[in-house]
């Protein structure tokens, strides 16, 4: 099991239901591969540091994920294709940091 961190920016024109749909789809894809979303941190609307697509803000969500290696290709593909998703970033958390946040332990239980 490895810990990952996924940040997703959804377009600010998308309504709450749309954002929820994106997040649920991500979780669905991860669970389907035997992983789990340990923590979902919904930041909400946040101003960009610079305009993206002529928009000044986006809806941010950070997910902490625990899954086996390279099961996230499908998630990445979905995020790249999804029109509502402005940007996303998937980062492998170093084991030490994952442990500190309790990601690996929680994965063993779930």
């Amino acid at each position: 099991m490895r810990a990952y961190e996924l940040m997703v920016i959804v377009d600010s024109d998308v309504d709450d239901a749309g954002v929820k749909a994106v997040n649920e789809r991500i979780e669905q894809l991860i669970v389907a591969d035997g992983g789990s979303v340990v923590k979902t941190d919904f930041w909400g609307r946040r101003r960009y540091a610079y305009p993206i697509n002529h928009k000044l803000e986006g809806i941010y969500t950070v997910l902490e994920i625990s899954t086996t290696a390279s099961n996230l290709d499908e998630v990445d593909r979905f995020l790249r294709l999804a029109d509502d998703v402005v940007r996303h970033k998937l980062i492998r958390l170093p084991d030490a940091e994952a442990e500190r946040r309790g990601l690996l332990g929680a994965a063993a239980e779930g």
Partner: peptide
């Protein structure tokens, strides 16, 4: 650089 890509920090 990661934060810049996600528009958390300016270029």
């Amino acid at each position: 650089k990661n934060a810049r890509e996600m528009a958390l920090l300016p270029y």
